[in-house]
Design a protein around this nucleic acid. Structure first.
Lengths: 202, 202
DNA sequence: TGTACATCAGTGAACGCGCGTTCACTGATGTAC
DNA sequence: TGTACATCAGTGAACGCGCGTTCACTGATGTAC
């Protein structure tokens, strides 16, 4: 016996189809058939396909944003906060890889049109904020915090992408130690570069 | 006077539309209108919309693959080969940012279905090969070459993505020095991690 | 217990629309004699 | 120079199709008296 509501079942089934075939290539009829109902009945639960997709993205994105806020809340050195965030993302990924992949695959259809809650629940903005804090406090002397943030996001996102395509076989959690080390290597590289620059200027 | 063939003009206009609105959201009528011709006439130049999109992706991907092959050809230390590849990609990006973005946005629609020429002209596979060489020669002691490759690709791709969304404002070429430094920091981190592991095991 | 009514997930058929694509045709340009 | 023909980019109208969505209806379940 399942204690999922019909609405949740639709969400779950739709998410799987969207990841497997791309949201645009999945029709309302496809979703209904996979759930085991009539297309018309989907509209008793969702306003339409657009609402379903947008809701999945918004909720997933918010979930990651909240998780990062929790993980990074501590008033600790940047390296500690970063490690907590990285490990949290690895865990979240493994708990629901389909959701992560959905966010990955459809991000570009939604990032343009996320006016509200842009920072409050945007995981990238939250990581960016943590980097900004570290720069402001002098902990990290970086010329370009945006680039550093991009590099950190890139390591995480691309690891998950490689996993998705089978170029990597271990789970994100199994690789967490190494991913943390890579991220710290990145932070160290910007620190070294900044030092070289300052010395060079004398 | 333009010396572009009609076919090239279609390619160029279509590429711009695909990046601006997403390939699925651009119709054959949209492309024809933007080019200044009739939808029907597009079929005198391309077999169909699918062919146009697939051709743009294939050619772009091959171009990047070839460029990486050129850049990494030298029988040099890994750090030198890596730097050459990174700089080459930064330059290519800036020469035609629209093409890069198209490859970025549509990769997931095509990567599943690229059976032929999978390695010959696949930029990721080529970088992966260079990493593999360095590991094989003992230059880099890494437990997981795939993860290292992912991290390097991630830094490049995510930098371009941030630039695309305005989170970064300098061009890839302007950031090339720093991006190279970040990549070398990643390589160094895997080396350090491997060393720690080896020492720890004693 | 039996009857009347409300609720609500789910159905079946149909809708208009925009899509990719086809095809007979046009009209300008170049070439042969 | 004039005529006949080939070439070919481009046109205009139409096609079938699958899409998202609507709507009147059904049938099972719960509730009140």
């Amino acid at each position: 016996m399942s204690n999922l509501t019909t609405k949740d079942k639709i969400r779950q089934v739709a998410l799987g189809l969207f990841v497997a075939r791309g949201a645009d290539a999945v029709s309302v009829r496809d979703i209904a058939e996979a759930v085991g109902m009539t297309p018309a009945n989907l509209y008793a639960h969702y306003k339409g396909k657009g609402d379903l997709v947008a809701g999945l993205f918004r909720d997933g994105y918010t979930q990651y944003g909240q998780a990062l806020l929790d993980a990074a809340a501590a008033d600790a050195p940047f390296a500690v906060r970063l490690e907590a965030m990285v490990r949290r993302i690895c865990r979240l990924h493994d708990e629901d890889a389909t959701l992560f992949r959905f966010l990955l695959l459809t991000q570009h259809d939604h990032l343009d049109r996320v006016p509200e809650a842009k920072d409050g629940s945007n995981p990238v903005a939250i990581l960016s904020g943590a980097v900004g804090d570290a720069v402001a406090s002098g902990e990290i002397p970086t010329a370009d915090p945006g680039l550093l943030t991009a590099a950190l996001v890139g390591v995480l996102v691309q690891s998950a992408t490689f996993l998705m395509y089978g170029r990597i076989t271990r789970s994100m959690s199994e690789m967490a130690d190494e991913i943390v080390a890579l991220c710290l290597g990145i932070v160290g590289a910007t620190r070294r570069a900044a030092t070289v620059k300052r010395v060079g200027r004398r």
